[in-house]
Each structure stands twice: as structure tokens, then as C-alpha cells.
Amino acid sequence: MEVRTIKVFTTVDNINLHTQVVDMSMTYGQQFGPTYLDGADVTKIKPHNSHEGKTFYVLPNDDTLRVEAFEYYHTTDPSFLGRYMSALNHTKKWKYPQVNGLTSIKWADNNCYLATALLTLQQIELKFNPPALQDAYYRARAGEAANFCALILAYCNKTVGELGDVRETMSYLFQHANLDSCKRVLNVVCKTCGQQQTTLKGVEAVMYMGTLSYEQFKKGVQIPCTCGKQATKYLVQQESPFVMMSAPPAQYELKHGTFTCASEYTGNYQCGHYKHITSKETLYCIDGALLTKSSEYKGPITDVFYKENSYTTTIK
């Protein structure tokens, strides 16, 4: 009895394709271990004539594949690729409408935090270190965002349907971005203890939790000093293409032309909904596939993004 075979390709990165001759009487799992086709788990399936010449994702289970996976995804987590594939199996079914010149995501599976993050990423200057993220990001900007969303979920250790947080998501993504040249110098002034300067680099240099107003941050924000008295913390120097200011959701007025974009969060910790506000020729609110415009805006804002380049204080 002759062994019926077909020729397929296996890959971990969709760049390096490895030619395989597979036995049609055995499952993919018996031949390769966990195997995925377009995100779908085909591990328990036997090869079919229609699979001839198709590319299958496999887990990096030998040295060659491990090197290829690390170079593309910059992670050695053995569960990463499987999590990416199972997320992709959902995100490829989502709709990605162009809204006001940006790629958004039609609401499904509690994905409003991903839509808000995706919209924000198209408006701030950011370059990702893992080629996987950078490639998928370019495709997302062009309207094909399924891979990018699935990668975000995998890097953030999230599953489809789980509630997510924009600030946490951005923080994970910033860790995989090139923020080497970003720098922030802060000064804390206390009447009792004097003053202390701190220099922050990388992710810490672009994120701040405690106030939404970048102007206020430049002037000074009140913080408790270690001595128990009130101290003032203010920005001395900022070198970065953008800054992200966050605070627990509270009524906040966004003035046209003073910011790049913002995240609105309605609801409580267990259950809520994100919308995205962007400042173009007027203010726009993007909620999944829905767009509304207004000249002014007041609502429960939790993150505001500002364009920056270089700032030095005039406070002496």
C-alpha cells in the first residue's frame, strides 16, 4: 500500500517557510505537534488534498525554529505562539472599519479597549522592536488589523473576551517599542525636605499616572512627601515624541487643539466601556464603527496623549 502524501510549508514567522512532505494517514499533531492554519487549530486533523502548498504555523520545537521565533517575536515564552494563534482565530472574524481616516474595530468580545489602543497607536510616533509587531502594525494602518490585535493580546497575556485596560495595554506595548531616546527629568520640591531631581528613561519617561493635564504637570502637581507634608512635583525636561497622561476616570474637559487623542471610560472596574476622542479640525468621538463630532467635550476621561518633541522648564 502506497503512502499518500502532500507537500506543505511549516513556519513560526510566515517569513521562513520549511518544506514538509506530510503523510495523509496521520494527523498534523502526530507529525508536527500543535499546528495552526489561519489561526485555526488543526492539530487533530489529517492532511487533505486542499492543504497542498498551504502554510501551517507550528510551535518552535527545534533550534532553527526557536531562533526564527525569537528573532521575529522577541520572546522565548513557549506558550506565546499558541496564544497568538488562538487569538487570531477570533480577531480574523472582527470587522476593521476605516473611521475618520483611522483603522478602528467594530465592537465584539469586549474589544473596546483594543480599538482605543489601536486608534491611539496610529496617532503617536512609535516604532516597535519585534519585527512581528512592526509588520502587523503597518498592515493594521492599511486596514488589516487582525494579526496586530492578536499579537497585542498575546504580548499582554490576554484572551479574547476578557476586559482590558488601555493604560495597561499601552504599557505592555511600550515595553516592546523603541523608547531608548526618551528621557524625563522631574523635580520634587518640599518646604521641609528641599528639592530632589529624578531622571527617568524609556517607558517611565512617557507615562504618568495622577493627572490628565500635561500643562498642569509642567506647572506642578501636589504629591505627598515622605515627611508627610505636601510637596510639588513638576516637569523639568521632556525628550520624547509623545507623552501619555493618565488618571482614574473623572469628568474632564478636553479643549480642541490642546491634545492629540484621549480615552474615555464609562462604567466601573468590573464592567465598563471605552471610547476614543481625537482632536482634528474639530473633536471626534470614535466608538467602534461609530463616529460623532463636537466642538467641545466633557466626560469621564482616563488617558490623554500629547505630541511632544523637546521641553525644558522655565521655572527657576
Rank of each mutant, 00 (worst) to 15 (best):
L153K: 15
I124T: 05
E215T: 13
H74S: 05
V188P: 02
N89T: 09
T103K: 01
S213W: 02
H256S: 14
Y269E: 14
L153C: 09
T27D: 08
G257V: 03
I301G: 04
F9M: 15
C149S: 05
D41T: 15
D13I: 01
D38T: 08
D303V: 08
G161A: 02
I223N: 06
K54R: 15
L186M: 14
A140D: 07
T76M: 15
L163E: 10
T192H: 13
E264I: 11
L179W: 06
C227S: 04
G53H: 10
F56K: 01
N49C: 14
M26R: 15
L186W: 13
T211S: 12
I105M: 07
E215P: 02
Y265D: 04
K92L: 11
P248C: 15
R184T: 05
Y252P: 09
E215Q: 06
A136L: 01
R83I: 02
K183W: 05
L59T: 13
E264H: 07
A142N: 09
Y72D: 09
T258V: 08
G299Q: 01
T232E: 09
K293Q: 14
C225T: 03
M207K: 07
Y73R: 00
S295W: 10
T76S: 12
K106S: 09
G228C: 08
Y137P: 00
R83C: 06
T314N: 12
I223E: 09
C227W: 03
A150H: 01
E215I: 07
P241N: 12
F128W: 11
M209L: 10
V185T: 11
T282D: 15
I152D: 00
G220M: 03
Q175P: 04
V206H: 04
R83F: 03
Q122M: 02
A115N: 09
A154W: 00
G29V: 01
E296T: 14
D77E: 05
E239L: 08
P60I: 00
F217A: 08
T260D: 13
L283I: 15
Y284H: 09
Y265M: 13
G143A: 01
T43D: 04
Y214C: 08
F242P: 09
T313Q: 12
C190R: 04
T169H: 00
L37H: 13
Y155K: 00
C149Y: 05
Y72N: 03
K280E: 15
D63Y: 09
L59M: 15
F128T: 02
N110W: 04
V185P: 02
K95S: 11
F174Q: 01
C225H: 14
C193F: 03
K293S: 13
N268I: 11
K93E: 14
A117H: 02
W94Y: 06
Y57C: 10
P130M: 01
S86P: 03
A154L: 01
V221Q: 06
V99C: 09
V99D: 00
E68Y: 06
T10H: 07
Y84A: 00
Y73D: 03
T232A: 07
V166P: 03
H51C: 02
F128S: 00
P241Q: 11
L133F: 01
I315P: 15
K93C: 08
S25G: 10
T10L: 11
G267H: 12
H90E: 11
Q196W: 08
N89R: 07
I223F: 07
L254V: 07
L163A: 15
Q238R: 05
C271Q: 15
V166K: 01
C182F: 12
F217R: 04
R83N: 06
R167K: 09
P60E: 05
L235C: 05
M244E: 07
F70D: 14
L153R: 04
D109A: 10
G202D: 08
G228T: 06
Y72E: 15
K46N: 12
K158G: 06
I152K: 00
G288V: 00
V160W: 03
K44Q: 14
K255A: 07
S246E: 03
V166W: 05
L173K: 03
S246Y: 04
Y137L: 05
G288R: 05
M170S: 00
T91H: 00
N89C: 12
F242C: 08
L290I: 13
G299N: 03
D303E: 07
Y72C: 13
F305D: 05
M209V: 11
S25L: 14
K229D: 13
T260L: 05
G194I: 03
K46W: 11
G272N: 07
K44V: 14
T192S: 12
M85R: 11
I301T: 06
E71Y: 11
T159M: 12
L290T: 13
T11R: 00
Y84K: 02
V236I: 05
E52M: 11
V99L: 15
Y96A: 06
S213T: 08
E168W: 00
S50T: 11
G210T: 00
T302F: 06
S246R: 04
V22M: 10
P131H: 01
V203E: 12
N61A: 12
T292G: 07
L37F: 11
F174R: 02
H273S: 06
T76N: 11
D62N: 15
A140M: 13
C112V: 02
D135N: 15
E162D: 05
E296P: 08
T302Y: 04
V243N: 08
G272M: 07
A69L: 05
V243H: 02
K219S: 11
H276R: 06
G299C: 04
A142P: 00
V188L: 09
K201A: 15
N14Y: 13
R139H: 15
E204F: 06
L119C: 07
D180P: 04
Y297W: 11
S79I: 08
M170R: 00
A150P: 00
C285I: 09
K219H: 11
A115R: 07
H51G: 00
T120V: 11
K93W: 07
K95M: 13
G29I: 02
D287M: 05
Y311W: 14
E281K: 07
C271M: 12
G257P: 05
A136I: 02
K255T: 08
M170D: 01
Q251A: 12
V99P: 07
T292Q: 09
H51A: 02
K7G: 05
F128V: 00
H51V: 01
T103M: 02
A136T: 05
R66I: 13
C149I: 08
A247C: 11
D41F: 01
L291S: 14
F80E: 03
H90L: 11
F305V: 10
C182S: 07
Y72R: 11
Y172W: 11
K219F: 09
Y36F: 08
F9I: 09
A177H: 05
D109C: 02
Q30P: 06
Q197E: 04
P241A: 11
C193N: 04
L59A: 07
L186N: 03
K307S: 13
A262I: 00
D62W: 04
D62C: 14
A247W: 09
L163Q: 13
I301M: 08
Q270H: 13
F80H: 05
T43Y: 12
K183Y: 10
L65S: 12
A250G: 09
S79T: 13
G220N: 08
L212Y: 06
Y57V: 10
V8K: 00
Y96R: 03
E144G: 05
N157G: 13
M245N: 09
S279C: 09
R4Y: 14
G82W: 10
F174P: 00
T19M: 11
I315S: 13
K255L: 09
D63W: 06
S104A: 05
N129E: 14
Y284W: 13
T55S: 09
S50Y: 08
Y28W: 14
G272P: 11
D77K: 03
T35R: 01
S104N: 01
G53I: 02
G299M: 06
V42L: 10
V160L: 04
K229H: 15
H176F: 11
K316T: 15
T43W: 02
P241I: 06
Y36P: 00
F148K: 04
R167Y: 11
G288Q: 08
I315W: 12
K307P: 11
S171I: 13
